[in-house]
Design a binder for these strands. Structure first.
Lengths: 329, 329
DNA sequence: TGGCAATATGTTATCGCTAACATTATTGAC
DNA sequence: GTCAATAATGTTAGCGATAACATATTGCCA
């Protein structure tokens, strides 16, 4: 079934393509009867304007690329949702790409997005080294990174305040009288992981408490990582009173490990997660955690991107997480 | 920073645009020195071919649209991952769209994808009425639906065998001696929900067991739906011995409700979920459920779409779920 | 009725690329 | 050294739309 083109519609309506274009885009003056006739033919033929041809001349695609490291991590779908809602409302189409945690793929995807001339890109928790990321972003018309740093001339920034979150977590544990606090720090390459570890160390040292290097244990950023990381950590330090976890998935894994080891949570070990994914509230015991406004990250990033497309350079956005106290700590 | 065009590169290399095109696409004969010179200039200038212009003439975009109802439901990211892996390997770019469970948006998205001339679309668990869905799909060059039905001339099909899954669940419960089995059936509009309810009823009636209409309770397809649905159901029928849940999220919600009501799982009520999302194994007690090969749905759908793009019409794929017995039933 | 805005429509060129064909170099066989 | 075959490059047109300008048509008032 060959696609109907604007010229086809024009011919059948006995007008020039330009008139059809005006009707389709609701732009310029067209006599009501002419408009009616054209609309009818469009409906009859099922004509759909070719966005490709249109963008070629307008130099605008009304599309935005959104790159996320891993959609199966429940953190990211909420970010996507925030961006998607915002995009939909403004007539933009979002191209979401899941890079499955592979930097190579992130690179490829950013290049393909460039080739398809998206009006801008949002990169969420990039897995690329700074230098490479910046190089790739600089080729785009506009860019915003989430939970990463980049020069304002190249990209906007929307971040979660990891240092603050970690501090709140540690203070909460200290207030409940726990002093020997370990941490599952997540993947070494994760910026959030580093910022959270630093916040954790700060919070302890500022209040005059001890921090041991061996209380810090890296792990993968999912349940499996939490499960095995917790076991490693507790094998080294049987007397830890609490563990601050890189994120909720890690905390859920740790929770399972604790139960297997016969440790009661929070009586024997307290656990704090990060993110407040939906499962956090449904665990037994429900997880104490830091609620990150993921949806807000998505909307803020999209809004900032639009501003940058229009040539503005709004300042970085730093969203503070909120401590949600449940039963695990 | 104005974009470098192919003509720019050609001018700087002292050749025609056509020669540059041949180098870029690795097509036709080009003298090695010429190729070298052109590649160098491409690298220097950071030239990136304009996919828009290219598709306009080749009538191929090497892009595929993938529409999912809700990325925050852990079922779908795995499907996306399957399709994405397959796409990436074959040089296709996937445009993922999350419609946030809103049929209007699904319609819009399918139209926008048509306008951007994707080479095909995969629609996962469509939220549109049959008629409308088919109408929209028929405008696309190629289409595949996941967990929906459509005429083979318009769309390929890849489905989970819901009836089989429901039957397995019920048989398992019957074998353990439970006879009063309720069901949380999910959203009334869900095809899977209907197929699973039917399977449940079949399994009971075929084995000569009683089925009461009021044992069936619809609910939203997430934890909240499971939580409140379970309470409604158990208020009506305090003596139910088991509840077969629409999916794992619903089962997790039901689990929480049960615990709140002081019911032990599985001793007082057994619970079976559907999907085997990662959290199923981490719940307390771990969920008995039906493992759906979500990744496989994604890869199968993509492969089928490619075949259809090439004009073939492979038969529908029906993937059987596998009963995973854990502790909740 | 003429004339001049305002309204309605048409024309031409072009966005950046590639298909298809045309032309010009280069090579090797004799 | 000639000539055909092959290799290397160039030329032209057009994909389907719109920007920008040109022209035709209408309405309205003096």
């Amino acid at each position: 079934m060959p696609k109907v083109t604007m010229t086809d519609v024009a011919r059948r309506a006995g007008v020039s393509a330009m008139t059809v274009s005006r009707v389709v885009n609701n732009k310029g003056e067209v006599r009501p009867e002419t408009r009616q006739r054209i609309l009818q033919i469009i409906a009859e033929t099922g004509y759909r304007p070719n966005a490709i041809a249109r963008s070629l001349i307008t130099q605008k695609t009304m599309t935005i690329g959104l790159v996320v490291p891993d959609l199966t991590n429940p953190f990211f779908p909420d970010v996507v949702r925030g961006a998607e809602d915002e995009a939909y409302e403004r007539g933009y189409t979002l191209y979401v790409s899941d890079i499955a945690e592979q930097p190579d793929r992130e690179e490829q995807v950013l290049q393909r997005l460039e080739a398809s001339r998206v009006d801008g890109v949002i990169v969420c928790a990039s897995r690329l080294p700074d230098e490479r990321l910046i190089e790739l972003l600089s080729h785009h018309q506009a860019a915003v990174v989430i939970n990463r740093e980049a020069p304002a001339s190249i990209s906007g920034m929307v971040c979660n305040d990891d240092g603050y979150g970690a501090m709140r977590a540690v203070h909460h544990l200290l207030q409940s009288g726990r002093k020997r606090i370990g941490m599952l720090t997540g993947p070494p390459a994760s910026r959030s992981g580093r910022l959270r570890s630093r916040g954790y160390e700060n919070a302890l040292s500022v209040t005059g408490h001890e921090v041991k290097n061996s209380w810090l244990e890296p792990c993968e950023s999912n349940e499996y990582g939490g499960y095995s990381g917790f076991k490693r950590l507790l094998k080294r330090h049987k007397n830890l009173q609490a563990v601050f976890c890189y994120n909720d998935l890690v905390a859920l894994g740790a929770l399972q490990a604790a139960q297997e080891m016969g440790l009661r949570v929070p009586d024997d070990v307290a656990l704090i997660g990060y993110d407040d994914i939906r499962m956090a509230a449904l665990a037994t015991p429900p997880l104490t955690t830091l609620r990150v406004n993921r949806y807000g990250l998505g909307t803020a990033a999209f809004q900032m991107l639009l501003a940058r497309i229009e040539g503005k350079q709004p300042p970085a956005v730093l969203l503070r997480p909120e401590l949600v106290v449940r039963q695990s700590a």
